[in-house]
Design a protein around this nucleic acid. Structure first.
Lengths: 315, 315
DNA sequence: ATGAAAGCGCTAACAC
DNA sequence: GTGTTAGCGCTTTCAT
């Protein structure tokens, strides 16, 4: 395709003049401007953005590091980022890691090689110490709280939310409470366990089922939990789909909710409202929107987004 | 940050040699190679990908045009694309249009200005005639069937699927069948209507409820439909969440499913399995995966992905 | 095996 | 107002 040289030649001006009309600079005579515009139109010319990015040293593109493995929570976060990006004139590239550390680092280095202006980390697998050096090459925003001053954060205080849920369950008279989580190593799993300890003491190993992501996992979890010699009276699931699976298994063995078993989910998914499951909404779409805003503002603020508990019939 | 000139200077070689070691060319003496690698490591140097993209005239980045407005179907498609992209070494940029034609065109022109090597169109708002010229600047793949030879397609034969569902309903004895759809102008809405006509004749206006996207819309649709003077005996919803909303409303007025009302959904969502709703699975994740493959193969094939009907209790 | 030099397509001093 | 020129950071002939 034509380039700026050709346009200049055809319009009988210098490339500088072409560049000027392209960028709406003043000090271009009406005639030359018209001539250039005519040629541009005739040649169906569009400037090469890669060349421009090279000079400007920015791409107006950001990346979103996301495990992207079956989790509706991540989708909500991504949705929020995209929502916000559409207003501003930024592109967003999705960087799925499947929790592969090397892959994650590879994505981070896209800051270093100038492909990305910034990155939002939805969920990470590398320690912060490994990630921090990359802040030298671009802005990094996290959707999880961290003390590190180099990192802007848009997050929800999950520890507080877990604490509130467990306390609520305790107030309702539950003493034998089980819970499911995702990866054992994740921050939110650790926070869940910590909150549990705070309210009920160290959880019995039987009562904590990790690696739950989808409905089937919930079903399996329900099966394990409801066949324990001492059956828990309440289960806090790490997502509404998992909660739905638990509910389904409970139904299948005539354990009624909430009479025999209380269930609480997370993230306010359609399945939860359909089944009348109580759920804590961590407002992940909002978290994503704010993360985007922090990024383009190059801000290192820590923004705490409030969570909400939706009380329905399952407790 | 350091650039290739500096590395060359520090290593006491020409930039050509540096380029050679960067790209693993042979014909570089072991000593020089070692010297260069040492400096690269010492300076923590990474080549500028934007400069490389400028020369290579490709970015190894593709875009996905997607309305991104509350629809789980689009998420499945995107999920498929991302799934496939992670294997290959390609980046994917999400291009949300909210069905804004101008925005869509703006995204398409990213092919022209060399930012993208190709684009997958999940759902479009411009007519094909407007889109076709952009195939001169990069590969375009569609997730909807089109005759145009320039466009590769990874699609499901929705017309056939709708036909099969309506026929199935008819065989079950239903004569008064309603259905919901998304945007009136969308291809799949038109295909739904066409299939309906084929089986039941021109649908009464009352029985076709467009602009349904989420659970609430389903609830509202159920309300309208079940309060008609002549109540439909079956409803085909354009998604499981919509179907779930309908189910919920039916429950609320003691209309039992499937005795009084048959419900069929789409896309095999968790809410559908939770509620025991029959659903046709258009296998959108697969569609997305194949779309990606077509794109990087620069193929213009038309790949038809089979759909599946999941029979559950709601019919 | 190695390097000089000519670009890729554009922007931005600087001079006139 | 307009053009010349020197880059941005890299790859790639083409000599040697």
């Amino acid at each position: 395709m034509a380039n700026i040289n050709e346009i200049a030649r055809l319009a009988g001006v210098s490339i500088t003049t072409v560049s000027r009309v392209l960028n709406n600079h003043k000090y271009v005579s009406a005639e030359k401007r018209a001539a250039v515009e005519k040629v541009i139109k005739a040649m169906d010319y569009t400037p090469n953005r890669v060349a421009i990015d090279l000079i400007r040293r920015e791409t107006r593109t950001i990346g979103v590091i996301i495990p992207y493995n079956n989790n509706p929570a991540f989708d909500q976060l991504l949705h929020g980022v995209l929502n916000a990006s559409i207003e501003q004139d930024f592109s967003v590239t999705v960087l799925p890691t499947k929790y592969n550390k090397a892959k994650e680092l590879q994505y981070l280095s896209m800051l270093k090689n100038k492909l990305l202006d910034g990155i939002i980390i939805v969920s990470r697998s590398n320690p912060w110490e490994t990630i921090l050096p990359y802040t030298n090459y671009g802005v990094i925003v996290s959707c999880e709280y961290t003390d590190h001053l180099e990192i802007g954060c848009s997050y929800v205080d999950r520890y507080a939310s877990y604490l509130e849920v467990f306390q609520y369950l305790k107030d309702k008279g539950h003493r034998n409470v089980a819970f499911t989580t995702a990866r054992t190593e994740s921050t939110s799993t650790q926070q869940t366990v910590a909150a549990y300890k705070e309210i009920f003491g160290v959880p019995q190993p039987d009562l904590h089922l990790p690696e739950c992501y989808r409905m089937e996992d919930g079903h399996a979890a329900g099966k394990k939990l409801l066949n324990l010699s001492i059956r828990p009276t309440a289960i806090y699931a790490n997502g509404d789909e998992v909660a739905g699976g638990i509910y389904q298994y409970a139904q299948s063995i005539q354990v009624s909710v909430p009479e025999d078993l209380a269930i609480m989910g997370q993230e306010n998914q359609p399945i939860g409202v359909a089944l009348g499951l109580s759920s804590v909404d961590h407002q992940l779409v909002k978290v994503g929107e704010h993360a985007f805003q922090l990024l383009i503002d190059k801000s290192r603020e820590k923004i705490k987004i409030p969570y909400r508990i939706n009380h329905r019939l399952s407790i």
